[in-house]
Structure formats: structure tokens, C-alpha cells
Simulated scan of single mutants.
Amino acid sequence: MNETYTAVAGFAQTWGLLYFVILFAIVVAYALWPKNRKSFDDAAQIPLRED
């Protein structure tokens, strides 16, 4: 059983890290994509608007 746990833990660490790195890269690319700039600039100004 210990060998199975070690194998599963190694798999999860390796592929989990890869999964989160790819997910992070996708989120950063989405946030920095030029097409999305206007919507993010508008959202950033919401707290400064007066009702």
C-alpha cells in the first residue's frame, strides 16, 4: 500500500503542478490580452465613481 500511495502522490505532485502552472498562464494571458483591457479598466474605476 505504501508504494501505491507514493506513486499516486508523485503523480499528483508532478501533474498537479503542471496543471496549476498552465492554469496560471491562461489566467495571466486572459488578464493581459489587449482586447480585454477596456473592460478591466472600466472595472478598476468602479470604486472611484460617485453615485
Rank of each mutant, 00 (worst) to 15 (best):
F40Y: 15
A43R: 05
Y5P: 00
A43Y: 05
Y30W: 11
I22F: 14
F11K: 06
V27R: 02
F24R: 05
M1G: 04
G10E: 11
D42T: 11
E50R: 12
F20Y: 09
P34H: 04
G16P: 02
Y30H: 07
A43I: 05
E3W: 06
A44K: 12
P34M: 03
F20E: 03
G16E: 08
Q13C: 08
A25M: 14
K38A: 12
K35G: 09
P47W: 10
F24N: 08
L23C: 13
N36C: 08
F20K: 00
P34L: 03
L23S: 13
L18G: 02
A12D: 06
W15A: 10
A9R: 10
N2C: 07
L32S: 14
D42P: 00
V27Q: 04
Q45L: 14
A29I: 02
A44N: 12
G16S: 07
A43T: 04
A29R: 04
F11I: 07
W15H: 14
T14S: 06
N36Q: 11
P47T: 08
L17Q: 02
A25P: 02
D41R: 12
E50F: 10
R49P: 00
Q45S: 13
L48P: 00
L17P: 00
N2A: 10
D51M: 04
L17C: 01
L17W: 02
D42G: 01
T14W: 02
A9D: 08
P47Y: 05
A29Y: 05
I46C: 02
K38I: 08
L23Q: 15
V8I: 15
E50T: 12
Y30R: 05
Y19W: 14
D42V: 09
I46P: 01
T4W: 01
L32R: 15
M1V: 05
K35Y: 13
A25V: 14
F20L: 11
E3M: 07
L32V: 13
M1K: 06
F24L: 15
Q45M: 15
N36G: 09
L32P: 01
L18W: 06
F20M: 07
A31D: 08
A7G: 01
Q45K: 15
G10F: 04
A12M: 13
L32K: 15
